[in-house]
Design a protein around this nucleic acid. Structure first.
Lengths: 194, 194
DNA sequence: CTCGTTCCGTACGGTGCCGTATGGAAGAAC
DNA sequence: GTTCTTCCATACGGCACCGTACGGAACGAG
């Protein structure tokens, strides 16, 4: 965080915009407030971008690059599918910052400049989780359903972590017990309920 | 929907504001646009309310009354806990309108006028679901964890239903199969993984 | 019909943000 | 150090919304 950078790049603006989304949502992506936050004025912004929409577009592309495959790549560092799922749910317990970014992006998935990106990202993630369940031994259809359940739980968990973190298990012990419960449920052998 | 009501009440304004939240989020709770939507002007609004914050406050109270216990009451119509959980997840598959309201409210849980209401509502719902799992035979700690998982899945499901409905099972058959998977997983007997 | 209260429309000033115009500073080239 | 290009600050007009002031219409009571 350079205190007073003499000259700014387009990347400085998109990075600041991404941070603004994390703690204020898309409405916080406003030219003048971000300019003030960067110690600059609109004059700088309108040299690098044509308008606010161009900034939103570039910021969403940054998010797609930085945060989509980031999750998958991170999860991929684990060994077997159960450990990968465990890692997926571990990351969301605690890091409220990234959860806020996740949910604030999803919150504006209607926006024409946001929708296509969120769609691509969500599809990609769902496919990946589905593949995980397939590797864990579930039949294709069942793997798709488990993936939807797991990803729904992940999204909901992110929401709660971002908005009501006090409702989530606080200490490491409780988090471990909760993880056991989540994995046990998601990976439980398929069996028709009454 | 009276086409041209001669005189408006405070309830007309809160109802319109709730509808505005459902399809535009909290930023859509703006005096002048809602006035236009009601076929009136600001003059009417500022007679019934002192300012915009008062409208937000009243609207959140309306939401708490209308939509919190509404879910619990509706779920309570079913017989045993598994059927109640089934009903909970059935409602969110399909009704995108109520999902949009749910998620748009949760999306602004940081707002000082929204936070206390969302907190109360979420706590109450979580307690209820926990009680459901306790009735289903789970030990207290395990019931709390299952409840958190189930409610997370519910929240995530609402998000997906509101933003990316095409990712959810479309026809009734697929929805039934998905419900079986969800219930089978959430109610699977506790058993340590690995 | 009259009068008083309830309710609402219109007009105005204030604020925060967008986008444009323009002059000029900061850095590179030589 | 002059020149050219890159980058940015200032100043301006415009728009959407908030909140206030005030006059007048709509209704109930007598």
């Amino acid at each position: 965080m350079g205190m007073a950078q003499r000259r700014l790049s387009a990347e400085d603006w998109t990075a600041a915009a991404l941070a603004a989304i994390a703690d204020g949502g898309l409405p916080a992506v406003a030219v003048e407030p971000i300019a003030a936050r960067l110690g600059a004025t609109k004059g700088s912004f309108y040299w690098h971008f044509t308008n606010r929409d161009a900034l939103i577009e570039a910021t969403m592309q940054l998010w797609e690059r930085a945060c989509t495959d980031a999750i998958i790549d991170m999860v991929e560092t684990a060994g077997d599918p159960p450990r990968k799922l465990s890692l997926l749910f571990t990351t969301v317990l605690g890091h409220a910052r990234s959860s806020r970014l996740e949910t604030n992006v999803l919150a504006v998935a209607d926006h024409p400049l946001v929708a296509p990106v969120v769609q691509r990202v969500t599809r990609r993630r769902l496919e990946y989780v589905e593949q995980l369940f397939a590797e864990a031994g579930f039949a294709p259809g069942e793997a798709a359903r488990r993936a939807l359940l797991a990803y729904s739980a992940y999204v909901g968990q992110s929401q709660l972590a971002a908005r009501l973190p006090e409702l989530l298990p606080a200490d490491v012990g409780a988090q471990g017990a909760y993880l056991d419960t989540v994995l046990s449920a998601l990976l439980s052998p398929p069996h028709s309920v009454t």
